[in-house]
Amino acid sequence: MEKGPGVSNTDDNDTSSNGTTRRGFLTQITYAGAGLTLAPLLVRTKNILPGAPPGSAETSTINLTVNGQKHALNIDERTTLLDALRENLQMTGTKKGCDHGQCGACTVLINGRRINSCLTFAAMCQNSEITTIEGLAKGDGLHPMQEAFIKHDAFQCGYCTPGQICSAVGLMNENHVHTDADIHELMSGNICRCGAYQNIVDAIKEVKNIA
């Protein structure tokens, strides 16, 4: 499949030669917990750099491991993980519903933990295992959560569904679901405007074996 701009598959995991101070800066402050406000800050920073023409953001080569496959991307540093997946890698299973961390449609797993990929810069994910909806199934068979979603009709339009399923799989790893109410509460970061909530809970219960 033809990929988006600046994408190549690679097994070369050595990023040191491509490392830039900007990326180091980006990674540091994000790890310091400033992720939510980073975007405007970053843009402003660039604008006040002497001589920088407007919007001529740096591009960097970053390496992402998605569903076990390594990709080298030469991308705009402002690119979120969500847009890197959807637009650069053209893996469109992960959805954009709000781009602001308010809907959960973009949920993917990073090292098994569920996160909103629209709130995460691609450059922050270089040393992580990223799992998207396309990577949940092993071989021909679907992941049990995918099977359960079909069986319980846990979607209608299907747009929130990849995020719901990744979120549900992440939830399984979190070990704090004991009751139905826990599932309702802990799945509330994923909006489903079609209103498949009850069926989503039923699907999760089946996989969790607490039905």
């Binding site: 299973g93 396309e134 979603f149 979607f155």
Partner: peptide
């Protein structure tokens, strides 16, 4: 279309 929708 369930399989398509749950697999992205």
């Amino acid at each position: 279309d369930g399989k398509l929708k749950v697999s992205g």
